[in-house]
Amino acid sequence: MNEADYKELKKGGMMRQAEAGLFSVRLHVVGGRLATTQLRAIRDAADRFGRGEIHLTTRQGVEIPHIPQDALAALKHLLEPSGVGVGVCGPTVRTVTACQGRRVCPSGVIDSPELAGAVDRELYGKPVPHKFKVGVSGCVNNCMKAEENDVGIKGWIEPRWESPACTFCGVCQAVCPTKAIATSGDGRALLVDPALCIGCGDCITSCPTGSMREEIRGYRIFAGGKFGRRPSLGKRILGILRTKEDAMAAILGVLDFFREHGKPGERFGDTLQRTGFPALETFVEGRMGLP
């Protein structure tokens, strides 16, 4: 088998092992969620074609190592009825990661698995200039490490201050982790600095009089993050997006920008180093029909 063939196999989730003739088969998993029937199928496949071992990847994926090349087709066939497909590698949109989101986690602001599923259906395995990772955190506690992804999403709460009942007790200012809340010059209003606010909603949770309220419970997008040899963190782009559809549109816009401006083999963060973030934001806003 020549290098080009190995490359094609790798794109299709068959990772050549150090030991000649063996492959670690990457599976298609979204947000680290599998049905027990799928786990059983994976176990059966590992027992039958591998060495009874399963590898859990760093991004919530599953690989079955030690599969001989001539068993690849039969392994796929065995997994098929359970709905577990084979994964991807190479210059494609990779596994979409997600936390359990608001349906499970008390801290959750958004339904992360739902958005991850939508992104997966639309983009998984699609060709891009270089590998492209998407991760969804349900809230700003950020268990999914949004800033480590080419596109990361966080559930975000934007507070709004209402005057009538406020006693200026200072609790919101004391609990704010970034000191984003200031008292106006005349002492009669509270101002939340959107550049400092990290969307945690602590001011709302702890306000004794209900004067800090939820203005938006939505999605915040981070772009250009990566780890690897030269790690760099993604940066916040756009405003807070109110709906899953808006978040999806923003992600599609970001990906189109990468396809248009990224060079082959260049990570998105490096593309952004060349183009700057304002160019990305203008492009995505244009795509979304935002002013």
């Binding site: 006693t167 007790c169 200072g170 609790v171 949770t205 702890s206 306000c207 004794p208």
Partner: peptide, 16 residues
């Protein structure tokens, strides 16, 4: 404060 609110109590004054 958040647990007090959850349990149905009210914070009626704050001083420092």
């Amino acid at each position: 404060i958040s647990s007090l609110k959850t349990e149905g109590h009210r914070v009626t004054n704050v001083s420092r």
